[in-house]
Lab assay of single mutants.
Amino acid sequence: SQTQRTQDENEARRIAEEWKRRGYDVEVRNRNGHWEVTWD
């Protein structure tokens, strides 16, 4: 799996939607004030 971090929730949601469209299983988490998008 791969993880991308961002400070911006909207960006995190956009990234998550992009990977979901490509057929990946995606998880979005808030950790210590930043957002992590993990896909595999």
Score class of each variant (00 low, 15 high):
R31C: 15
D8M: 05
R13S: 03
R13T: 05
R14P: 00
E9R: 04
Q2R: 14
R5Y: 14
E27R: 08
R13A: 05
R21V: 10
H34P: 01
E27G: 04
Y24K: 03
D25I: 12
Q7D: 12
Q2L: 10
V37A: 02
R13G: 03
V28M: 05
W35A: 00
E11V: 07
T3L: 10
Q4L: 14
E17D: 12
G33L: 03
I15E: 03
T3K: 09
Q4P: 04
W19G: 12
Y24L: 05
N10Q: 13
G33K: 03
S1K: 14
A16G: 06
S1F: 14
Q7S: 12
V28R: 00
A16N: 02
R21Q: 14
A12Q: 02
T6P: 04
R14H: 05
E18W: 13
E27A: 10
R5Q: 11
A16V: 04
E9P: 06
R29M: 10
T6W: 09
V26A: 07
D25E: 12
G23A: 01
V28A: 02
E18R: 06
G33H: 03
R14D: 05
G33P: 01
V28E: 01
R5M: 11
D40R: 15
Y24I: 06
G23Y: 02
S1P: 14
R13H: 09
T6E: 06
E11W: 06
G23L: 01
R13I: 09
T3Q: 08
K20N: 09
D8N: 10
Y24T: 02
D8W: 06
W39P: 04
R21G: 14
K20V: 10
E36A: 02
Y24Q: 03
T38S: 12
E11M: 07
V26C: 06
E9Y: 12
D40N: 14
G33D: 07
V37R: 00
V26Q: 00
R13V: 07
V26D: 00
E27I: 14
E36M: 04
K20L: 14
K20I: 13
A12H: 01
A16H: 02
T3R: 09
E18Q: 08
G33M: 03
D8T: 12
S1W: 14
T38P: 01
R13F: 09
W19K: 13
N32V: 04
N32M: 07
W39H: 07
V28Q: 01
R5T: 11
Q2T: 11
E27L: 09
Q2W: 08
W35Q: 00
R21M: 10
Q4V: 15
E36R: 01
R5N: 07
E11K: 04
N10P: 07
R22F: 07
V37D: 00
I15N: 01
D25H: 14
A16K: 06
R5E: 08
V28P: 01
E9G: 04
G33A: 03
N10F: 11
G33V: 01
Y24V: 06
W19D: 03
N10Y: 11
K20D: 07
T3G: 07
R29H: 13
N32E: 10
A12G: 02
R29G: 04
R14Q: 09
K20T: 09
D8V: 03
T38V: 13
T6H: 07
G33N: 06
E36Y: 10
S1D: 08
R22K: 13
W19L: 15
N30G: 06
W19P: 02
R13D: 02
N30H: 14
V37Q: 00
V28S: 01
Q2G: 15
V26T: 06
N32S: 07
I15V: 07
K20F: 12
R31F: 11
R29W: 05
R21F: 05
S1H: 12
R14T: 07
E27Q: 13
G23R: 00
D40C: 15
N30F: 15
D40H: 15
T3W: 09
T38F: 13
K20S: 09
W35L: 01
N30E: 14
V37K: 01
Y24R: 05
R31M: 13
V28N: 00
D8P: 02
N32H: 07
R22Y: 06
D8H: 07
R13N: 08
T3F: 10
V37S: 00
G23M: 02
W19T: 05
E17W: 04
V28G: 00
A16E: 09
T6I: 10
W19E: 05
E27P: 00
R31Y: 10
Q2P: 08
W39D: 01
G23F: 02
E11Y: 05
W39M: 09
S1M: 13
S1T: 12
V26S: 04
E36K: 01
W35T: 01
R22M: 14
Q7V: 11
R22I: 08
R31Q: 10
A16R: 03
W19Q: 09
E11R: 05
A16Q: 05
A12M: 03
W39S: 04
R21P: 03
T38G: 03
E18V: 05
R22A: 11
E9L: 08
E11C: 12
R5D: 06
E9H: 05
K20E: 14
Y24H: 06
N30S: 10
V28T: 03
G33I: 01
D40K: 15
R29F: 09
D40S: 15
E17C: 11
W35E: 00
I15T: 03
G23H: 03
N30R: 12
Y24E: 02
N32I: 04
D40E: 14
G33W: 01
R5K: 11
E11T: 09
R31N: 13
E18L: 08
E17H: 03
R5G: 06
A12F: 01
V37W: 01
S1G: 12
E27N: 08
W35D: 00
V28D: 00
E11H: 07
I15A: 03
T38L: 09
W39N: 03
W35G: 00
H34I: 15
D8E: 07
D8Y: 06
D25M: 10
A12I: 03
T3N: 06
W35H: 01
T6R: 04
Q4R: 13
V26R: 00
Q4I: 15
W39F: 09
T3M: 13
W39Y: 09
E27Y: 07
D25R: 11
A12V: 03
R29N: 09
W35N: 00
E9F: 08
Q4H: 15
I15R: 03
N10G: 11
R14C: 12
D40M: 15
W39L: 08
E18Y: 15
I15H: 02
Y24N: 02
N30T: 08
G23W: 01
Y24F: 12
H34Y: 15
Q4M: 15
D40T: 15
D8A: 05
R29D: 04
W19F: 13
W35K: 00
E11F: 05
N30Q: 14
N10S: 13
V37F: 02
N32D: 14
N10D: 13
S1A: 12
V28I: 12
R5A: 09
V26P: 04
T3E: 06
R14S: 08
A16P: 00
R13W: 11
K20Q: 13
S1I: 12
D8L: 05
I15W: 13
N32F: 07
Q7W: 11
E27C: 13
N32T: 03
R22T: 03
E18M: 10
G23I: 00
I15S: 02
D8I: 04
S1E: 10
T6D: 04
R31S: 10
V26N: 01
W35P: 00
D25A: 09
R14E: 06
E9I: 07
H34F: 15
E9S: 04
D25L: 10
R21T: 12
G33F: 02
R5W: 13
I15Q: 03
R21I: 08
W19H: 09
T6V: 15
N30V: 12
A12W: 02
A16I: 05
R14G: 04
W35I: 02
N30Y: 15
V26M: 02
E9W: 09
H34M: 15
T38I: 14
D25Y: 11
E9Q: 06
H34K: 09
N10L: 12
D40F: 15
A12E: 01
T38W: 11
R21E: 15
S1L: 13
R13Q: 08
Y24M: 06
G23E: 01
Q7M: 13
A16Y: 08
A12L: 03
R14F: 05
G23P: 00
